[in-house]
């Protein structure tokens, strides 16, 4: 099973590049092209809605920074508004790259990626278990809420406000009890599948670094190169 779309390693590299861009002061024009390059993968991977909403967020931040911020006078609001429009705008490429990675990578692809990146087992196993466990928590939560409703506990938002600690306890404790049980079950099934055996483990997910991955990374480097060129001339 070869991974479709971009290689997860390329997605991770984009995230790292975005972190580098935080430290570089780009002109507005280069910043806009950077954002366009970062939202491009969404359109290639058939997620145009997310891609365009990020662009809208960026445009709102840019306009807010240029036309709203100069008129804010209260000190506290200057701080908040400039954090939303300027600070958060710098972090936006990273958030875009991160959202893309999360949205388009399956659990088994993540596990295969971490394996190829030689993430040690003591970190890999908890991560793999964690990613697989999320859907189970949702199901458990619904069961717990049903059981609580059956006994007339915490059925409305008012109860949550009146007795927050008790309601929290009633939801959390069964969840944790069950989690402890699930951990035991998973151990048995993992041991049956030979997870504790020494030697190299195989995976059916094959990562393949393709031309499109190269193109994405090179495109993401363009604003950086232009920025250096711009300061020289």
């Amino acid at each position: 099973m070869i991974v479709k779309g971009f290689d997860p390693r390329a997605k991770l590299l984009m995230i790292i590049l975005a972190a580098v861009y935080v430290t570089i002061d780009l002109s507005i024009l280069l910043e806009i092209s950077l954002i366009l390059i970062f939202i491009l993968p969404f359109f290639v991977s058939n997620l145009p809605l997310i891609g365009s909403s990020f662009f809208v967020i960026y445009v709102v931040q840019l306009l807010g920074s240029l036309y709203l911020l100069p008129y804010v006078e209260s000190p506290f609001f200057i701080y908040i508004v400039s954090f939303i429009f300027n600070g958060f705008r710098l972090l936006l490429p990273g958030i875009i790259a991160g959202t893309f990675a999360i949205k388009t990578t399956s659990v088994s692809e993540w596990v295969a990626t971490f394996k190829t990146l030689r993430v040690p087992n003591w970190l890999l196993i908890p991560i793999a278990v964690m990613l697989r466990f999320f859907p189970a928590v949702r199901e458990d939560y619904h069961h717990i809420r049903k059981a609580m409703a059956f006994r007339g506990i915490g059925t409305s938002a008012l109860d949550l406000l009146k007795k927050p600690a008790t309601t929290f306890e009633y939801i959390l404790i069964p969840l944790l009890m069950n989690a402890t049980q699930v951990a035991e079950d998973l151990t048995v099934s993992a041991l049956t599948k030979g997870l504790s055996l020494p030697g190299k483990h195989t995976t059916i997910v094959q990562l393949k670094w393709t031309v499109s991955d190269w193109l994405l990374i090179i495109a993401a480097l363009i604003p950086f190169i232009l920025n250096i060129g711009g300061t020289v001339s």
């Binding site: 196993i125 908890p126 278990v129 999320f134 402890t180 699930v182 951990a183 151990t187 993992a190």
Partner: peptide, 12 residues
């Protein structure tokens, strides 16, 4: 291994 799995579940 058992404890690795427990850590994963609790971290979730």
């Amino acid at each position: 291994l058992k404890e690795h799995i427990s850590i994963g579940v609790y971290t979730a």
